[in-house]
């Protein structure tokens, strides 16, 4: 469409969202929904469920934007947490069998095969530069909702090693992104 292509700074955007501004929400959605949807799909693996969750997530973001505190971190980080928590809550409440770690990992692995279809070439490029065990750790800890303890138990690794490797993987990623 040919509506104005507004750009906001993060501060302006948050201020406008707090005033329940329609354009600001449009902007927020257009800029972040792809990334959030990608993550929700990674956690729940079903498009239908992911779409339901997206509704909850964006309504929550909208309602709770007043609680977002810019001094505690980036807007995206906050949104990511809202998204991840909603997705993980869904798994834990609606599908209690997930609480059993072995089933959970089975589902994650099954899901991984399923969501290969959604992987972008850009991601493949980035992920291909990470070692496979690093990939797995990032997936479990950041998108899969596993605690470090659960990850350690599942991968049969000492807790300290999990922590070091997660950090190492992020450091490598940071270099890849050039941050």
């Amino acid at each position: 469409m040919f509506l104005k292509n507004n750009k906001y700074s993060e501060e302006e955007l948050i201020e406008l969202l707090r005033r329940q501004d329609r354009k600001a929400f449009n902007y927020l959605y257009d800029n972040y929904s792809d990334a959030i949807y990608g993550i929700v799909l990674k956690v729940v693996h079903t498009e239908e469920v992911a779409q339901d969750l997206m509704q909850d997530i964006f309504v929550k973001i909208w309602k709770n934007i007043t609680q977002y505190d810019g001094s505690k971190g980036r807007l995206f980080t906050w949104m990511l947490n809202v998204a991840r928590n909603s997705a993980i809550d869904y798994l834990r409440i609606k599908r209690p069998e997930i609480q059993d770690i072995d089933t959970a990992v089975y589902l994650v692995e099954g899901g991984q095969k399923a969501h290969d279809d959604w992987t972008t070439p850009e991601l493949q490029e980035i992920v291909s530069r990470l070692r496979p065990e690093q990939q797995k750790l990032i997936e479990m800890v950041y998108w899969g909702g596993y605690t470090h303890e659960e990850t350690a138990k599942q991968l049969d690794m000492p807790l300290g090693t999990v922590k070091t490797r997660v950090r190492g993987a992020l450091q490598d990623l940071r270099k890849i992104f050039g941050a």
Binding site: D34, Y37, M54, T120, I138, R174
Partner: peptide
């Protein structure tokens, strides 16, 4: 670190169906 995670999330972004926005 937050930027790295955001970059990773953006790299694996998936476009939700257009109708979803209207629903929300």
């Amino acid at each position: 670190i937050a930027d790295t995670l955001e970059g990773l999330a953006r790299a694996q972004a998936v476009k939700p169906p257009a109708a979803l926005k209207d629903k929300i």
